[in-house]
Amino acid sequence: MIYTVTLNPSIDFIVRLPQLTLGEVNRMESEDKFVGGKGINVSRILKRLGKDSIATGFLGGFTGQFVKDGLLAEGIGIDFVKVDQDTRINVKIKADQETEVNGLGPTITPEQLEALKEKLARVTAEDVVVFAGSAPHNLGNSIYQDLIAIVKAQGAEVVCDFEGQTLLDSLAFEPLLVKPNHHELGMIFGKTLTDLDDIQQEAKKLLEMGAKNVIISMAGDGALLVTAEATYFARPIKGQVKNSVGAGDSMVAGFAGSIMTTKDPVEALKWGVACGTATAFSDDLAELSFIKEIYQQVEVVKL
């Protein structure tokens, strides 16, 4: 089974208008409300791929009920800890420029945190647990060290989709996959990375520090997979980018869902690229038919 851990889920409130003018009344042209959170996005794409998962983390209030109902409507398994305060709302304003206003999220009590730890302690060596996104403000991202350790103690594999120091800290647990983009990779090592060879060399450092597979997403310039055996480059696919929210999560889902069954990191890369690209070219997370269409366009070469 694949478990996805989203410690600070959200409702993503998408607002579209031609232009945002500060200090004035702005009238939207259209809006959408989606269940959000990086781990939740992974579960939603896995479901489209026909892969079962169980989404866990913290949910509370009427906003948490919206998230719960949305996941159940898609047939996704859930096992969240109920909290006292409302799950957050993130506002994504799509105008002449994209602007985001992200909610703070609930305060997690020690008892609620312990309840989540008990759930994670039930995973087995047959499972993969995806940790993704930021933690609630009163816990801080350092809490991932405790949660990942619990999962690894049960023999499960972990996928860690973090940035910066949180990603570096996760490498001690030998994650099955980490997936920074090339800008995040450069920030980790204090470099500006534009050349493919330079990106490859820095990605190998993450491998040496503990990661089993490293994917570097490069937006419109393709993606790089570094493994202990070889490095592979997925050529970019042309199309109109409509949605940057969830593309990286979709890539994680495609890789994790494939590698559990195929044990082939190159095939997993192809599905990861297909899912991530299809979402980038969609208004919401990509549908299966479009993912399959993009999969046929994925070209991977060994470097």
Score class of each variant (00 low, 15 high):
9 P>G: 02
269 L>K: 07
78 I>Y: 12
192 T>V: 15
145 Q>V: 03
69 D>F: 06
235 R>P: 05
37 G>A: 03
20 L>R: 09
82 K>V: 14
121 A>E: 14
130 V>W: 02
202 E>V: 10
45 I>R: 03
30 S>D: 13
31 E>N: 13
236 P>Q: 10
190 G>Q: 13
21 T>H: 14
73 A>T: 04
58 F>K: 04
37 G>S: 01
21 T>S: 15
87 T>W: 00
296 Q>E: 15
240 Q>C: 08
13 F>N: 10
193 L>E: 08
267 E>K: 14
139 L>D: 03
44 R>T: 03
52 D>M: 11
243 N>W: 04
64 G>C: 03
31 E>I: 13
148 I>K: 02
181 N>I: 04
146 D>P: 02
203 A>Y: 07
252 V>Y: 05
112 Q>V: 10
67 V>N: 00
25 V>L: 13
212 K>W: 08
47 K>W: 07
272 G>W: 09
14 I>W: 07
25 V>H: 08
25 V>P: 01
236 P>S: 06
67 V>R: 01
139 L>C: 02
179 K>D: 01
117 K>V: 11
271 W>T: 09
124 T>K: 11
198 D>S: 12
222 G>R: 08
55 A>M: 00
155 G>T: 04
218 M>L: 10
241 V>L: 13
31 E>H: 15
6 T>W: 00
293 E>F: 09
43 S>K: 04
217 S>T: 14
77 G>K: 13
178 V>G: 01
49 L>G: 04
203 A>W: 11
146 D>T: 14
173 F>A: 01
285 L>W: 05
118 E>S: 13
293 E>Y: 12
265 P>L: 14
50 G>K: 11
260 M>Q: 14
165 Q>T: 07
299 E>K: 12
228 A>R: 11
228 A>M: 06
161 D>M: 00
136 P>E: 07
114 E>P: 00
83 V>R: 07
195 D>W: 08
186 G>C: 08
78 I>S: 10
66 F>K: 04
28 M>S: 15
90 N>H: 06
256 A>G: 01
228 A>S: 12
64 G>R: 01
231 T>K: 04
10 S>M: 03
261 T>I: 12
231 T>S: 13
28 M>Q: 11
88 R>P: 01
118 E>A: 13
269 L>I: 10
132 A>E: 03
269 L>R: 05
98 E>V: 14
86 D>C: 08
251 M>H: 05
38 K>R: 05
171 L>S: 04
193 L>G: 05
90 N>P: 03
33 K>N: 01
10 S>P: 00
178 V>I: 06
186 G>A: 11
135 A>E: 00
22 L>V: 15
58 F>I: 02
302 K>D: 07
228 A>P: 02
247 A>M: 04
40 I>L: 02
246 G>K: 00
11 I>C: 00
186 G>I: 12
47 K>Q: 11
238 K>W: 10
50 G>C: 11
102 N>M: 03
87 T>C: 00
77 G>P: 05
250 S>P: 12
34 F>A: 01
16 R>E: 13
100 E>M: 06
67 V>C: 01
107 T>C: 08
